[in-house]
Amino acid sequence: MKPKACIIIEHIEGNIRECAFELASLARMDHLIDRYDWSAAIAGNDIENAAALFAEKTGIHVIALRNDSLERFSGEGYLRAYECAAREVVPEIVFASHTPLGCDIAPALAVKRGMSFVSSVQKIAFSNERIMATRERCNGKIREDIVLPVPTVCTIMPGALPACKHAETSGRVSVRNIDIGKLQSLPGTITHSLTSGAELTNAEVIVSAGRGVGTPQHMEHLRNLASLFPRSAIGGSRAACDMGLVDYGFQIGMTGRSVSPKLYFACGISGSAQHIAGMKNARAIVAINRDKNAPIFQIADVGVVDAIERFVPVFVDLVGDKKDL
């Protein structure tokens, strides 16, 4: 009998998130496709349609874990549901998405099931009969290769894998009405807020701030740089937003916006996977960072090792002079 691999299908109010379809592409990978008996689990209350959609698109057998207390997400409730699935399937490996909801349950599932835990994986490869995962540390400066222990719960970064191609034949759906007891957590509703920052989507040139910008005063240099270009906008990394340099609506990255401008200036941005997920489709990337080891330089077209407050004013003046000629 083949060992089992199980995918956790993340959804918000029954809408399956893109990252769940990315996980399904693992089931099509050479070596992995035949090595495992694949299934996927989705927890919730009204999830039969979502389960059918996932099974149809991916061809994977979906176990729908149904209970009225699972209408809204709580770590406690969804953990109990996935424990039910794990007891039924007894997976050698569980794949979940490395998202706020995925990270809420995956480590706890590993503990409850006595499985190892490997998180924020960027790449999965197969060699010598083993699965090799590559993840990153220290904001992307260091890559870590790990041979996945058995059994393991593994979270995969959104965007790291391609979305699964449409399957030729649909997978089965098995609905389970599960008993999860009484929950202590009382999960509330999901609120969607309209944030600022829509202009980032249409901007041809984006000047983006990171932790390395340092102080709000230095944002002036970024505004001057942006003003050299028509149809430009200013964005920032999570760190820049946390520091109050940029409004959260203008955050670029995994938990923010995804952009694909013609030209992207990464100013004082180290280049964590979190950020790169949101800007890797920029056509040209210019990175300015005083840390020569910053991983942003690995994906940039042009790299300048310098402080923002030193380099940017000199560049802006130079362009101003050229334009005057």
Binding site: R137, R143, E144, I146, V147, P149, F297, Q298, V304, F315
Partner: peptide, 26 residues
């Protein structure tokens, strides 16, 4: 028992690193 192997990220692009003075780089 999970043994990690660490390494630096690989370049995915032919990055043009500017190594001159501030003015030259500009």
């Amino acid at each position: 028992n999970a043994k990690s192997r660490f390494h630096l990220p690989h370049r995915t692009k032919e990055t043009h690193m500017l190594t001159g003075s501030c003015e030259e780089n500009a």
